[in-house]
Computed example of a mutant assay.
Amino acid sequence: MYEDPIVTEVRQAGQCLADEAEGDLHIFFQRLREAQKKYPERLVRAPQHPSQVAESGLPSGE
């Protein structure tokens, strides 16, 4: 079976974060939220629904 190196890297990173939180989901997600605040430029935002784009007055990209 093919093993994607990017998927492997992401899984390893997630496992490291889980290990650092000692398996505590509250701590795990708290640290993720802190990282989001620290590195907002790295976040990917979900595309807006077309009706929201029209209401915002922004170009739809089409």
Rank of each mutant, 00 (worst) to 15 (best):
Q12T: 15
V53P: 03
V7F: 11
E34Q: 11
R11I: 06
E62Q: 06
R33M: 15
P59Q: 14
G57R: 02
T8Y: 08
R31L: 02
H49C: 04
L32V: 14
Q12Y: 13
E9K: 09
Q12V: 13
P5F: 13
E20V: 12
I27L: 06
Q48I: 00
K38T: 15
G14M: 05
R31G: 00
E20N: 11
Q36S: 04
A54T: 06
A13V: 07
Q30R: 13
F28W: 02
P5D: 11
S56V: 05
Q48N: 05
L43A: 12
A35F: 12
G61N: 02
A46Q: 15
L43Y: 08
Q48C: 10
I6H: 09
F28A: 02
R45H: 14
Q30D: 10
E62L: 13
E62I: 12
L17P: 00
Q52Y: 13
R31N: 08
D4P: 02
R42Q: 14
I6D: 13
V53A: 02
S51W: 06
S56E: 07
Q15W: 01
P40G: 04
V53M: 03
D24S: 11
A21E: 03
V7W: 15
D19N: 04
L32P: 00
I6T: 15
Q52L: 14
L58R: 11
Q52V: 08
V53T: 02
P47L: 08
A35M: 15
S60C: 00
E62D: 09
P59H: 07
P5S: 06
D24H: 09
S51G: 01
E41K: 08
D19P: 02
L58E: 15
A54H: 05
Q15Y: 09
P47Q: 11
E22S: 09
D19H: 05
Q52G: 07
A13Y: 01
A13N: 06
I6K: 10
K38V: 05
Y2S: 07
T8P: 03
I6W: 13
V53G: 00
P40S: 05
P59N: 08
S51T: 05
A54G: 03
R45W: 06
S56G: 04
K37W: 03
H49Q: 14
L25A: 14
K38D: 13
E41F: 10
Q52R: 13
H49R: 01
F28V: 05
P47D: 08
L43V: 07
P47W: 04
S56T: 06
A13R: 07
H49I: 03
I6P: 10
V10A: 14
L17Y: 03
P5V: 08
E9L: 15
P47V: 09
E3T: 14
M1P: 04
A46P: 07
V44H: 11
Q52M: 08
D19S: 12
A35I: 13
G14N: 02
D24K: 04
H26D: 03
D24M: 09
E55Y: 10
A21Q: 01
L25D: 05
K37G: 11
P50W: 04
G61Y: 01
G23H: 07
S60D: 03
V44E: 14
Q36K: 12
P5Y: 09
P59V: 13
E20H: 10
Y39K: 03
Q15H: 11
A46Y: 10
D4F: 06
Q48Y: 04
